[in-house]
Simulated assay, not measured.
Amino acid sequence: MTATHHAPAAAESGASATQRFKTDKFAAVAGTPKERVSTLAREVLSAVHETIRKHKVTYDEYNALKAWLIQVGEDGEWPLFLDVWVEHVVEEVATAHRKGNKGTIEGPYYVPGAPEQGSRGSVPMRADEGGTPLVWTGTVTSVDGTPLKDAKVELWHADADGLYSQFAPGIPEWNLRGTFSVAEDGSFEIHTVRPAPYQIPTDGACGKLIAAAGWHAWRPAHLHVKVSAPGHELLTAQLYFPGDEHNEDDIASAVKPELLLDPKPGDGGETVSYGFVLDPA
């Protein structure tokens, strides 16, 4: 699984994310009452109107906003924009009731159907994959402590250059993406490499906003996971590493103290222990 790659342009990455997302997302809300649609739409617009009035937005600023919104669409960066600056609040509201593990945003780079690797295995990776080897062990249980032997852990993350397979050219299709079942006792062991921090794409519309506002574009290093089991709520999370300078000011506002790992020195790399407690559906 060797390949070379270069950093994708925002348009390349954005087009991939948009295409992945362009499935029927409306079916789940097809029966939403018109009154709720009206309420949400009116309150969002009212917040925009209030901002305009409060800050006396000029026509030049308004026209710049229109041009920027058009560019977001042309660059295919709506998934990136929404996942970086909006999704963390939706996730907070949607999972506030949970008694099990804390989750966080999915982000724009999830791909379903990653290869099954069993309960003890390695994610697919290149022979010369960069990054410190990482062995991750844990268990999946219900809130009452019962091991969930039919659970699955989906893992995906960026490589040492901060790039994701299927969203950057030249990387093998399933590189650093795998699905892990668990053993009878709910345990799993995953072999991968420690990912690197990275900047979200900055040469497109989102990058223009970041530059104009004087923000940074960095995300701390993280592992993405989806943990599922029959009869339980799906958990989507990201796991972070202590000491990363952007844990405190993540551009996506997705870091939570409960999601920090505690790496230990291991045989030729690092080891971490982190398990999951799922809420009944």
Rank of each mutant, 00 (worst) to 15 (best):
V44W: 07
A252H: 08
A151W: 08
D144M: 11
F81V: 02
H216N: 13
Y240L: 05
G107S: 06
G204A: 09
T32C: 12
A3D: 10
T137R: 15
R36Q: 09
P172E: 07
H5K: 00
P197G: 08
H97R: 07
P265N: 14
P220N: 10
G275H: 09
V86P: 09
R53Y: 00
E184V: 10
E189K: 15
N247Y: 02
T95F: 10
P263W: 09
Q117E: 12
R219G: 01
P124R: 10
H191W: 04
A127W: 04
G131E: 13
V140W: 05
S122R: 12
F21R: 10
S228H: 03
H232S: 05
L80K: 10
G204D: 14
P112G: 02
K152D: 05
H232T: 06
P280R: 14
V272L: 13
G170P: 13
P242E: 15
E77D: 09
E270G: 00
F81M: 09
I70C: 02
G162M: 11
R194V: 05
G118R: 14
G73W: 08
S253R: 15
A96C: 06
L82F: 02
V193A: 09
L209V: 02
R219F: 01
T39H: 15
K226E: 12
G103L: 13
S16D: 15
L40V: 03
L209D: 01
R219E: 05
S228N: 09
G266A: 11
T271Q: 15
W136I: 08
A30Q: 07
H191M: 11
L45A: 07
W215F: 08
I171L: 08
P115A: 01
L261N: 02
R20K: 11
K66Q: 01
T202Q: 15
A217Q: 10
T141M: 12
H55C: 00
G178M: 14
H49D: 14
A15Y: 04
R20G: 05
V86T: 04
K226N: 07
P257R: 01
T18P: 13
E116T: 02
T137C: 11
D185G: 08
V143E: 14
D161S: 07
G214V: 04
G103N: 13
Y110K: 13
V143I: 15
P112V: 01
D267Q: 14
Y109A: 04
D161L: 10
G103A: 06
V48H: 11
T18V: 01
Y110L: 11
L235P: 08
K22S: 14
S165W: 04
F276A: 08
A212M: 11
W85C: 00
A205L: 06
P220C: 09
F21P: 00
P257Q: 05
T179A: 07
D144I: 02
G266Y: 08
R98F: 05
G269Y: 10
T202L: 11
T58G: 01
D262S: 13
V29P: 13
R177S: 01
I210C: 03
N247W: 03
P265C: 12
P8T: 03
G204W: 11
W174L: 01
L65P: 00
P33C: 03
G207A: 11
Y59D: 03
Q166E: 09
A217M: 12
S273Y: 03
V135Y: 06
T32W: 12
W156P: 04
